[in-house]
Every structure is written in C-alpha cells, then in structure tokens.
C-alpha cells in the first residue's frame, strides 16, 4: 500500500513539473494561436544552464535564481526577433521554424556540454530523507512539490488579481478586442512568451538534481506538455494544473503497476479525456 502512496506523491511532484512546462505552452497557444515546438528546448536549456552554474559556483540556489531568468530572456529574444514574424503564418510554418530552433538549441547544448548527460548534485540542505514513522521520502522531492505549489499559487494570484492577469485572460478570448481597448497585444505576447520560457527553464532546473540534464530531454517533455495542454484545455491555467497532475500521477502509478506501459497510459488517459470532454477538462467552447 505504501508503495502506491509513495508513487502518488512522486506523481504529484512530476505533475507539478509537467504543469510548469505546459502552462506557458498552453497560454501561448490560447492567446496567440501559436504552436511552439521549441518549448521543450527551453526546458532542456534551463536544465543545462542550471548544471553550468552549479558546476561553476557549486551553488544550486544561485543556479535556480539565475538560470530561469536567463531562459526568460532567451524566450523574449526568440519571440521578439524570430517567432513574432510567424503569428500570421499557417501552423505548419510555425512548426517548421520552432522545430528548427529546438534542434539548434539541442545541437548547441551538445556542442558545449557534450552528448552524454550530466548529473547535478542535490543541494546539501536537501540531501537525505524525511522520516514520518514508516513513511520515508527524499527531502528534495518534497521541496520540489512545496516550491512549485507556492509558485503556482503566486502565479494564480497574478493571473486572477492583477490588471495584467485580466488582460491575459481577456487575450485568450479575443486579442482583437484587447487591441480595440488600446492595449499593445504584441508587448503582451512578448511578456507572456518570456514568462512561459521562465517556467519551462525553472522546470528544467528543478528536475536536474532528480534525473540530471540530458541533451535529448526536450522532445519527450514537449510531447508530454502537448498531452497536458490537450487534457486540460487550450489556454487554461487551471486546466494545465489539473492535466499536469493527472498525467504525473497516472505515469507514476503505472510505473509500479505495469512499468512497460507507463508512457503509453498517458496517451490512453488523454484519449479517455477527449472522448468525454473534447475541449479538455477545463476547456471552453
């Protein structure tokens, strides 16, 4: 029994990471109708930047403070000078260019850090386990759950309680109407894109001490993120949270029930959700 409990908690942790990768992708898709295949590469580069800072300074906390903002800057730059040219282009052009960008990032990572994955040490403060009676669990994984939950709450507050959040929610309904109110939607797009890249980079950094940094981690993360976006509903923040947690828990529980099928089951879960709710758990008509 306790195995399933542990897998449930593992699943929540993985799910929160999936949420952080997916939420930017979902909102960018929902507001700009833009398909960003480079999003997984932001996660990859976030993990490697984190590794590089830890390797250079020995401080994981410094890495966590530096790598995600660097990704935000990278995302902002990519949006401003490359991707913003594609907003009016058909999806296949967006896919071609962003897939190309993803490959450039991936190959760049291999040029700098090599084709073999790197390990990132767990910070000293969070090494070891916590023990509650018969329940034993790694400290770092608990930290990831707590930290991402806190961050999610802050993001939710920003989305629900600030003017920028209201504009972003309005943008998922109609960017034309937002522009008619005198709001520069392109500036809003750049900011949103940077925020999405920040979160993907942070997810990469947080995952690094658990599963390391690997040059091929981008495409896998991207496909999971698309599953989460579809399950949760395009453009929905709470949908991405629900979808991320669902996929995390399904994958984690299945890995102890039927480990060969764990990855297949996330697509089964997606198919089941689409059958019942074609627009996703929290999607809108």
């Amino acid at each position: 029994m306790s195995l399933y409990l542990i897998q449930l908690i593992n699943g929540l942790g993985i799910g929160m990471i999936y949420f952080m990768i997916s939420v930017g992708l979902s909102i960018i898709f929902g507001t700009m109708n833009f398909v960003n295949f480079a999003h997984g590469a932001f996660y990859l580069l976030g993990a490697y930047l984190c590794y590089a800072v830890v390797a250079a300074t020995g401080s994981f906390w410094l890495a966590l403070a530096v790598a995600p903002p660097a990704m935000a800057l990278t995302g902002w730059f990519a949006e401003r000078y490359l991707l913003s040219r594609l907003y009016h282009a058909p999806h296949q052009y967006q896919i071609l260019v962003t897939l190309g960008l993803a490959l450039v990032i991936q190959e760049g990572v291999m040029l700098v850090w090599g084709a073999i994955g790197q390990n990132v040490a767990t910070p000293v403060l969070l090494q070891g386990v916590v023990v509650f009676g018969s329940f034993v669990y790694p400290k770092y994984r608990l930290f990831v759950i707590g930290f991402t939950a806190l961050l999610t709450f802050v993001l939710w507050l920003a989305l629900e309680r600030t003017r920028y959040g209201a504009i972003l929610r309005a943008g998922t309904e109609s960017t034309e109407m937002v522009a008619l109110l005198g709001i520069d939607i392109f500036r809003m797009f750049s900011f949103t894109f940077a925020l999405g890249a920040y979160l993907a980079g942070l997810a990469g950094g947080l995952t690094a001490p658990i599963s390391g940094a690997d040059p091929f981690m981008g495409p896998g993360a991207l496909s999971v993120a698309f599953v989460v976006v579809v399950i949760g509903g395009i453009g929905s923040f709470s949908g991405a949270l629900a979808g991320g947690l669902l996929i995390g828990v399904v994958q984690s529980e299945m890995s102890s029930l039927w480990s060969e099928g764990a990855n297949i089951m996330i697509y089964v879960a997606m198919a089941l959700v689409i059958l019942v709710r074609p627009r996703g758990l929290l999607g809108r008509a």
Binding site: R163, A166, R169, A170, E173, V178, L180, R284
Partner: peptide, 14 residues
Amino acid sequence: GIFQLLSVEENLAI
C-alpha cells in the same frame, strides 16, 4: 466583445 470569463468590473478595469 464582452470578455465572458472576466467580471464586469474587470472588463471595465482593463
């Protein structure tokens, strides 16, 4: 063009 997900006050505030 009323934003359906936003409250009346938010529609005005933005």
